[in-house]
């Protein structure tokens, strides 16, 4: 088994949920719960998900300028992440397909984690 990071990317930097109706948010919630429940039952959740606020700062290299974030060179923004355990990259990728961000044209980045030296 190995650990992986799922990064949830919001396309264009906006979460559709900011303008969604209560009914739509509730439907989305149901989808998220179904997905995380599947991951939990399969013992895949390593560390619970962490949602991020869209505000933030970016510290740049060299002169260490601080600008208002989030990281703005990409047109998409990381909205949150979760750490999972899976057999290999393929399984981790397969499991990520249930993620509701994909329905809104968002993306999941699946990255293997380097094992830390003990």
């Amino acid at each position: 088994m190995a650990d992986f990071l799922y990064l949830f990317w919001n396309k264009g930097g906006v979460s559709r949920m900011d303008t969604a109706s209560p009914e739509e948010i509730q439907k989305m919630m149901q989808k998220w719960m179904a997905w995380t429940e599947t991951l939990k039952k399969g013992g895949h959740i390593k560390e619970g998900g962490v949602p991020l606020q869209s505000a933030g700062k970016v510290v740049h290299g060299g002169r260490k300028n601080v600008t208002d974030g989030p990281y703005a060179e990409a047109k998409d923004v990381v909205g949150g992440f979760i750490l999972v355990t899976a057999k290999d990259l393929d399984e981790a990728t397969e499991l990520s397909k249930g993620c509701p961000v994909l329905e809104g044209d968002g993306m999941v980045e699946v990255r293997p984690i380097r094992s830390l030296p003990a």
Partner: peptide, 21 residues
């Protein structure tokens, strides 16, 4: 730290491409 390898899964069609972003 993350390994350079990875996968991107995108959109309702759940298209998989090589990552990272």
């Amino acid at each position: 730290p993350l390994q350079m390898a990875g996968k991107m899964v995108q959109g309702p069609q759940k298209r998989v491409t090589d990552g990272p972003y």
